[in-house]
Simulated scan of single mutants.
Amino acid sequence: MSRNVPASPWPFVGMGGLACALFLYGASGLVAPWWAVVVLLLVWVGFLVTACVWWTPHPKRLPVLAVVAIAFWFVALLGGSILFDWS
């Protein structure tokens, strides 16, 4: 017997946010060195894996994860520009 449980929209919102974050992480090559972009993309893959694991058990956490991913990108680029003079 199957239950008619409506699908939660929050995982889709979170994945959309992670897609936006991917664009930011990829565009970091305009201001950051190549090795920093590689590290940032590896961190983004970690966010994606976490989102896939949380898809069913914690769907409301995915939008928060996307916001954390974007905040991490901002802090990483700001820190890199201050500490390492990325331009």
Rank of each mutant, 00 (worst) to 15 (best):
L24F: 12
N4A: 09
S81I: 09
L41Q: 06
P63I: 00
V38I: 15
C20G: 10
P11L: 02
S87I: 10
P57E: 05
D85N: 11
A76V: 08
V45I: 14
P9H: 02
V39Q: 12
W55Q: 10
A76E: 04
L18T: 02
K60D: 12
L22T: 14
R61Q: 08
L65Q: 03
W54D: 03
A27I: 10
F23I: 14
I70A: 13
F74E: 06
V53C: 04
L48S: 13
G16F: 01
L78E: 08
V37I: 09
C52E: 09
G79E: 07
F47N: 03
V39L: 15
R3N: 15
V5E: 15
P11F: 00
G17S: 03
A51W: 00
D85V: 07
A69G: 08
L41A: 11
P6L: 03
T56N: 12
S8Y: 05
A71D: 00
R61D: 05
F12G: 11
V45H: 08
I82H: 08
F74N: 04
W34G: 15
S28R: 01
G16N: 04
M1P: 08
P57L: 03
L48K: 01
L48E: 11
L41R: 00
C52H: 10
K60P: 05
A7D: 09
R3V: 11
W54S: 02
W34A: 15
P6Y: 04
L30I: 09
L18H: 01
V49Y: 04
F12C: 09
L18E: 00
G29T: 02
G79D: 09
L77T: 10
A7S: 13
D85E: 11
W34E: 15
P57K: 05
G26V: 08
W55E: 04
F12H: 12
L24P: 01
V31P: 01
V13Q: 02
S87D: 14
W10Y: 10
V49T: 08
M1W: 13
W55D: 05
Y25I: 04
V49W: 07
G16D: 03
V64Q: 06
L41C: 07
T56C: 05
L40H: 14
L62E: 04
G26W: 06
M15C: 14
S87E: 13
S2V: 14
L18I: 04
V53M: 09
Y25K: 01
V49F: 07
G14F: 00
L24H: 04
A66Q: 00
W73H: 15
V75Y: 08
V68Y: 02
A71S: 03
V53D: 01
L40C: 14
M1G: 12
L78R: 07
P63A: 07
A32K: 01
